[in-house]
Amino acid sequence: MSLFAWLRPANAALNAEQQQRRERLRVAPPLGECSLREQRWVVLDLETTGLNLNRDQVLSIGAVVIEDGAIDFAQQFERTLQRTDHKLSPSVLIHGLGPSAIAAGSDPVEALLDFMEFVGDSPLLAFHAPFDQHMLGRALKDSLGYRLQHPFLDVAEMAPLLCPQAHIREAGLDDWMGYFKLQAGERHHAAADALATAELALILFSRARQQQIHSPLNLQQRLSQWKRRQQTHSF
């Protein structure tokens, strides 16, 4: 994101209660050396108006929590954001969020505050995480004047790191679900995609432990090393 994008003022003025909620949002620490099982993870998926990082908007947020080594179905998040200026685009054929659903959505300020309170100080997981990280960060900056600093790990990078025998490095979520024979009730729906990503992440955490990767910090370090090797081999 450009420097000028970060300097843009928030589009919506926050009332006193919203400002207090923003100030109370928890600061996420760097990834640590607790076990992968002990770490609370928030698995995120976004549906957006398109793929333009600087112009398109977040339409819906879906998230589930991995805690104590399992998906905690008591901790789920789902919101559609109201976008009064949204014009119908071809992306509706993918995510299915038409004008009526968006018009009936939640106020973006309230939805984003709710989501960050749900996240707390937990790190985030997503499939193709750089996109979700960028789009969520921009939405938070524009609507709340809040800078997202939570750690993100990319499940799309974890999979080929931990399962090199699959030989499907550039695969999408559907490819990895097929590889592990996972079933998805629905796709291109934020909550359903977050759940599918969480199921994949649990398998990958098990593979990580088998490879002596026992902590979030260790996993982050191995991912960084793997990415550097991939970049070196690409030249």
Rank of each mutant, 00 (worst) to 15 (best):
D154T: 12
L112D: 10
E17Q: 13
F118I: 02
H167C: 11
D72K: 03
S89L: 11
L124H: 00
R169S: 14
T84I: 11
A171I: 10
R22V: 15
A16D: 14
A13Q: 15
G69H: 06
L200Q: 02
L46K: 05
L223Y: 08
L59S: 05
I66V: 14
M116D: 00
D68L: 02
I94H: 04
L53I: 10
K227Y: 06
D56P: 13
A126K: 02
D175C: 02
R79V: 12
W226T: 04
V58K: 02
I102S: 04
L136K: 04
Q133L: 01
V109M: 06
D142L: 15
H188Q: 08
V119H: 00
I168A: 12
V27F: 00
A126H: 02
Q183F: 08
G32P: 04
Q19N: 09
G178C: 05
L25E: 06
Q57N: 10
N15I: 07
L93P: 00
I66A: 06
D45W: 04
A111Q: 10
L36R: 06
P164R: 10
F127N: 05
G145T: 09
P160Y: 07
Y179P: 04
Q210H: 08
I71D: 03
R209D: 06
I102G: 05
A184G: 12
I168S: 08
I168K: 14
L51I: 13
S2G: 13
A129N: 11
P123A: 02
P130H: 05
L112S: 08
E157H: 09
A101T: 13
R26E: 14
R169G: 08
L113W: 03
R209E: 15
P151H: 03
A194R: 09
S35C: 06
L148I: 07
I94Q: 07
L14Q: 01
L112K: 09
G120L: 01
G120R: 01
G69M: 09
A192V: 04
P160H: 08
G98T: 04
C163P: 00
A5R: 15
R209M: 15
P30G: 03
V65P: 03
L202Y: 02
F131C: 06
P9Q: 06
P130D: 07
S91D: 05
L81M: 07
N11Q: 14
E33K: 12
A184Q: 15
T197I: 09
G185A: 12
S143F: 12
A198C: 08
R229V: 01
